[in-house]
Amino acid sequence: MNQSVRPAGAASDAKTPGTLNGIPRQSTRQPPAGEDRGPRAGHPAGTATRRLRPWQLLPTPTGTPFTFGYALVLAATSLLARYADPDLVASLLHGSSTDVAHLAQSPVLVLVASALWIAGGITSPYAIVFLLVLTALERRIGGLRTAGVFLLGHVVATLATEVPVGFSVLAGHLPDTSLHRLDYGISFGVAASVGALAGLLTPWLRWPVLVGFGGMLVDDLIAFTDPMTNWGHLLALLVGVATWPLLRHRPGADRGASPTGSGPRPAAGPRRAP
């Protein structure tokens, strides 16, 4: 008659509730309160569920410092433009204009100064788009890269629309007054930010955003009220789209990240004997 052999430690395990006879080294430790118990049913490993709260749509000093600080500056200049002496405001706007004459004299100064004003004031649609889009973009890629996208669109679209004006004046196709065309505002940077943010959205939301915003810009171009600026808006949108490959790759994502992307890869410890 065969006699069953109980593995070492089975006697003690048999007296412990919740263990099975014949299976050694069963852990009976209960995780303390607050300790991660692993993925729950319906939630794959490495997947965190996040709910978007209403106040996260607007900039905050700690969450989106670049957008928050920039918004305060724009609010101040908008109030200045509304309530200050009209002659002073006109002088400041002309001094901040990125026209050909100013770009030839002090390009860096006017490129920065022109982005401190909102054409149309704080009630302009671009002011609302600025708050929503740059807040969302900064929450995804950080303040430094958000500032880079905004500045890239602002500079590229400005130069692409003003430099041809200068050559047209030299060729005699435009009058000399075109060298002093009033041009300022944040619209080029906002358009580039919309294009960049679209690349970080899910496809079902990305294409409606691009088609809707791009269609609005095309309508403005067809109206032919300010063709140079309207072409600049479309170009800035394309500049934002061109940044997709750079923004989708997060710096440091390949260093210390777990395969699921849920956090740092745990340090390798001693392997437990079978």
Rank of each mutant, 00 (worst) to 15 (best):
150 F>P: 00
156 V>F: 10
188 F>N: 07
111 L>G: 02
138 E>H: 06
171 A>G: 05
130 F>H: 13
196 A>I: 00
135 T>A: 06
177 T>G: 13
125 P>W: 03
190 V>E: 03
150 F>N: 09
166 G>E: 03
103 L>T: 12
131 L>D: 08
96 S>I: 02
129 V>P: 00
154 H>T: 14
145 R>D: 08
121 G>I: 02
119 A>V: 05
157 A>N: 00
181 R>P: 01
190 V>I: 04
162 E>F: 02
130 F>D: 05
161 T>C: 06
177 T>P: 03
177 T>D: 14
94 H>I: 03
185 G>K: 07
174 L>R: 06
153 G>D: 12
163 V>S: 02
133 V>T: 15
124 S>L: 03
143 G>V: 03
144 L>Y: 08
195 G>A: 09
158 T>L: 10
117 W>T: 01
128 I>C: 11
105 Q>I: 12
143 G>Y: 02
126 Y>A: 11
178 S>C: 09
92 L>F: 03
119 A>H: 07
148 G>Y: 07
192 A>F: 05
157 A>G: 07
101 A>V: 10
180 H>N: 14
150 F>W: 12
158 T>E: 10
197 L>R: 06
142 G>V: 11
124 S>N: 13
116 L>Y: 04
93 L>E: 07
141 I>Q: 11
183 D>F: 00
177 T>I: 07
192 A>W: 06
152 L>K: 08
156 V>K: 05
91 S>G: 02
130 F>K: 02
107 P>M: 12
177 T>L: 09
123 T>E: 14
101 A>H: 15
181 R>K: 14
159 L>N: 10
180 H>I: 05
147 A>M: 13
141 I>H: 11
143 G>S: 15
169 V>Q: 05
109 L>N: 10
125 P>Q: 09
188 F>K: 04
100 V>A: 15
137 L>E: 12
155 V>D: 06
122 I>S: 12
125 P>L: 06
138 E>G: 08
165 V>W: 05
163 V>N: 02
111 L>E: 12
129 V>T: 14
144 L>M: 12
155 V>E: 07
158 T>K: 10
107 P>K: 14
131 L>R: 06
167 F>V: 00
104 A>H: 13
123 T>I: 08
136 A>D: 10
177 T>S: 15
98 T>D: 13
170 L>S: 03
113 A>F: 03
185 G>Y: 04
123 T>A: 15
168 S>F: 00
102 H>W: 09
190 V>N: 05
100 V>E: 13
123 T>G: 14
187 S>G: 00
109 L>I: 09
175 P>T: 06
170 L>D: 08
133 V>A: 09
151 L>N: 07
160 A>T: 08
137 L>G: 11
107 P>Q: 14
140 R>D: 09
116 L>C: 15
111 L>D: 08
114 S>F: 04
154 H>Q: 15
169 V>N: 00
102 H>P: 04
178 S>D: 14
192 A>V: 01
149 V>K: 07
92 L>T: 01
137 L>A: 11
172 G>R: 03
131 L>G: 11
188 F>T: 01
112 V>S: 10
127 A>N: 02
94 H>N: 13
112 V>Q: 09
152 L>I: 01
142 G>Y: 12
178 S>L: 02
